[in-house]
Nucleic acid binder design. Structure first.
Length: 778
RNA sequence: GGGCGGUUAGCUCAGCUGGUUAGAGCGCCUGCCUUACAAGCAGGAUGUCGGGGGUUCGAAUCCCUCACCGCCCACCA
């Protein structure tokens, strides 16, 4: 019997069951048809990496999105929430390599083809685990539309996007200085480099003039790069050096690999800062971005002196084969022996580290593929400035704008094996490049068939940046694309504002402006944007407000929390702390409190069901399905009935208002206060005395009270449902004794200010007097 | 070097566009197994809202300033 609930709420007993039910019944699948119906509410789930497990940040993200999705769905909006996972190039490749290392083998030993196979195996195991965890959290996504960023369909779209950009002249390939990760041996973008303040040394080194008439002292933090020096620059306005400009220096140590000491010029360049060091700066175009720029300005040669692993690459030299740091020590030593090391000082500097591997980034000259970003950035700036995309909190609009206005070309290529391979083919005969959607039979230039495909893959964020339209079938003009693009809202963390949000805006606006509207008209920018709104949430920290990190050992596993307190309690905790713009200090104590809240609701249901049963025993069964057609609460109804229904209406209105502005904490607290404070503490206590079915004289009143109680409770469950989907689903079905009016409470309607009960004016004041009286008596 | 956020009860945090005795959870104190719930009920204590100055009839809330904490961005050897 559904009314026979255990005394204590046990989430584990019901959550798996409902998660499976929502899945098998495909409750949240949305067809593309239904033209002319209300505008859909569409969201794209930020795809988790297939590298491992979900963390608290994912759970916060999914909780917020799920609350909004369920709320919109219950308000009657066709709601589509698309889930998926990301192949996460570097991150996944590293995991697989680590796994191989544990097996005593390596990527190189396996070869590209078999390595990629292994990566796919990894994906099916760990990608699957992540999806299972999402299901456990109750995310009301449309599983029929689930994607993986390297699926065949998405691969086609990625190639199409790349080829189009190439055809538009926006992609170029060239030898430029890039951020090089010597551990993964790949280029990474500026965003993938994190900077850390570290105390190092600055070395003052004497470079003698070629004619022996004197010397100049340069300052450097990376003496090993002097092997690739091609000049020394001084500021044109620097009085100290004006006479030396144009003269030649003999580069120390260069005789060891060049036969004789190489002569390099002193040149004037305003980059040299007279205030810094000695005012004279060595120029190494192949190993420093600033020096590269100087080299370009003065047409200097670019000498590469390090290999892919950041070892000195100068055959014949005593430094050959040494790691850059070992080489540094050796060079400093040698300079000292030569009497050319003038001074070594401690120096605090910002050092670039690879976000993924932690390796010190080595600026390196290499051939890479770039996207000319300015035209895309211009459109992306316009979209936000015109208000076609709105940020919450608004401060991120500014952050975004500043980044977008100072953007650099995007290095798209990665020297990895796991990822979308660049659709370009090199001709062995004429060395030309053929970029094509499908493997070309012959070189587009000379017709030779000696073609080999480019070995580089694309930056992961290139494919994920296309997702808002590729998930809906682009480049096909599919019904999904027509119906669901642009998406309504993106919910994500600030950590991927530039990586992902900004890229989606650029690529979405750029490609979609060329796709006509469903009626054939030209697409305005407001309809080309990938989403109309962005809600950016903060970080989930531990209870002490510390950032969670494996090294600190304070990482909280959401799945563990869920199995201990129930998904609803954890969700509610996150929601009740999710204030826009503020980090969340996840507190287990608070989660316990919310588990108590779930238990409170559970027991309120038990009390109500007990009375329904008592009424039935007294010969007055209540038909839940008939409650909707009962007259509304009138002025002749008891005060507490008028009051609780008014409170419900007011709360429903306020919750909706809070959710409209993404004030999750407020929405959650409102439901909490209504349910516990108003409904349980006051209303239930007062109504208890009326529920006397034994006394025939009181039966009419008792039945009326029970009716209002049931109607209010049923509406309260719906009010709470987006926040606590499992518990409310269970109780809602129980309330209807297993025969509910809809397959799920998620498909019922959200309470509004009018529905189910209109507010009664003045009742709050009258109730307040009664409450004051009762408190006084106590 | 730019930019942003924070500083409110013992702890973790709310307090939106300024308005009656500043709130929540947990913790603490007192009394209750009242037949929905001890993961509960009733009651209680606790805050010169970081310091200073200003605007206002009125400021935790707006402005200035100082202090401390945190974050983001940036090619200064």
């Amino acid at each position: 019997m559904p009314h026979d609930l255990p005394k204590t709420y046990d989430p584990a007993a019901i959550e798996d069951r409902w998660a499976a039910y929502w899945l098998t019944e495909k409750l949240f699948s949305v067809p593309a048809e239904a033209q002319g119906s209300p505008a859909p509410f569409t969201m794209l789930l930020p795809p988790p990496n297939v590298t491992g497990r979900l963390h608290m940040g994912h759970m916060l993200n999914q909780t917020e999105m799920d609350i909004l999705a369920r709320w919109h769905r219950m308000r009657g909006d066709p709601t589509l929430w698309v889930p998926g996972t990301d192949h996460a190039g570097i991150a996944t490749q590293m995991m697989v390599e680590r796994q191989l290392a544990a097996e005593g083998t390596s990527r190189q030993e396996l070869g590209r083809e078999r390595f990629v196979e292994r990566a796919w195996q990894w994906k099916s195991v760990y990608g699957g685990a992540i999806l299972d965890q999402m299901k456990r959290l109750g995310a009301s996504v449309d599983w029929s539309r689930e994607y993986f960023t390297m699926n065949e369909r998405l691969s086609v779209a990625v190639k199409e996007a790349f080829v189009r950009l190439w055809e538009q002249g926006l992609i170029y390939r060239g030898n430029y200085i890039v951020n090089w990760d010597p551990v993964q041996q790949t280029a990474v973008s500026d965003l993938e480099v994190t900077h850390q303040e570290r105390l190092g040394s600055i070395y003052h080194i004497r470079y003698p003039l070629a004619d022996g008439s004197g010397s100049i002292i340069i300052a450097t933090t990376r003496p090993e790069t002097m092997l690739g020096d091609v000049a020394v620059a001084v500021n044109p306005d620097d009085q100290r050096y004006q006479a030396l400009v144009g003269r030649l220096l003999r580069l120390p140590l260069s005789a060891t690999y060049d036969g004789a000491e190489r002569e390099i010029p002193i040149l004037a360049d305003s980059w040299a800062n007279p205030e810094f060091g000695t005012g004279a700066v060595k120029v190494t175009p192949a190993h420093d971005p600033n020096d590269y720029a100087i080299g370009e300005r003065h047409s200097l040669p670019k000498l590469t002196v390090m290999d892919e692993q950041a070892r000195i690459d100068l055959p014949g030299s005593p430094y050959h084969g040494l790691d850059r740091l070992a080489a540094r020590d050796r060079i400093v030593e040698d300079l000292g022996a030569l009497g050319l090391l003038v001074e070594v000082k401690e120096h605090s500097m910002s050092i670039g580290l690879s976000q993924r591997t932690g390796a010190v980034i080595e600026p390196r000259l290499s051939t890479q593929w770039f996207l000319r970003i300015q035209p895309l950035a211009d459109v992306a700036v316009a979209a936000v400035e015109q208000g076609d995309i709105r940020f919450t909190p608004d401060q991120y609009r500014k952050t975004y704008g500043e980044w977008m206005r100072n953007i650099h070309d995007w290095c798209l290529s990665r020297q990895l094996w796991w990822g979308h391979r660049i659709p370009a083919w090199h001709c062995a005969a004429c060395a030309q490049i053929t970029v094509a959607r499908n493997t070309p039979a012959a070189c587009a230039d000379c017709g030779s068939n000696a073609l080999s495909q480019e070995t580089d893959v694309l930056d992961t964020w290139f494919s994920s940046g296309l997702l808002p339209f590729t998930v809906f079938g682009w480049p096909e003009q599919s019904p999904d694309l027509a119906r669901f693009y642009p998406t309504q809202l993106l919910v994500t963390g600030f950590d991927i504002l530039f990586f992902w949000v900004a890229r989606m805006i650029m690529l979405g606006c750029w490609f979609m402006k060329d796709v006509p509207m469903p009626d054939g008209s030209e697409r305005p920018l407001a309809e080309a944007v990938p989403f109309r709104e962005v809600y950016i949430h903060a970080l989930v920290r531990d209870a002490e407000g510390q950032k969670m990190a494996k090294t600190k050992g304070n990482v909280i596993d959401p799945i563990e929390m869920v199995s201990r307190y129930g998904t609803d309690a954890v969700r509610f905790t996150l929601a009740s702390m999710a204030s826009p713009g503020t980090d969340i200090a996840f507190s287990e104590a608070r989660t316990e409190g919310n588990r108590a809240f779930a238990n409170k609701i559970w027991n309120a249901a038990r009390f109500i069901f007990m009375n329904v049963d008592r009424a039935a025993e007294a010969g007055i069964p209540v038909d839940m399905h008939a409650l909707g057609s009962m007259p509304a609460i009138g002025e002749d109804a008891p005060l507490e009935a008028q009051w609780i229904t008014s409170q419900l209406a007011a709360t429903a209105a306020e919750v909706s208002r809070a959710l409209e502005e993404y004030r999750f904490h407020e929405a959650a607290m409102l439901t909490y206060q209504f349910f516990w404070g108003d409904f349980c503490d006051w209303y239930l206590e007062i109504v208890k005395v009326r529920l006397d079915f034994a006394d025939a004289n009181k039966r009419a009143g008792a039945l009326e009270a029970l009716t209002t109680l049931l109607r209010t409770f049923e509406a309260a469950l719906r009010l709470l449902s987006p926040f606590m989907p499992f518990l409310t689903e269970e109780l809602w079905h129980a309330l209807y004794t297993g025969a509910p009016p809809a397959p799920s409470i998620a498909l019922s309607r959200y309470p509004t200010e009018q529905d189910p009960f209109p507010r009664v004016p003045g009742v709050t004041q009258r109730m307040k007097s009664l409450q004051d009286l009762i408190v006084a008596v106590r």
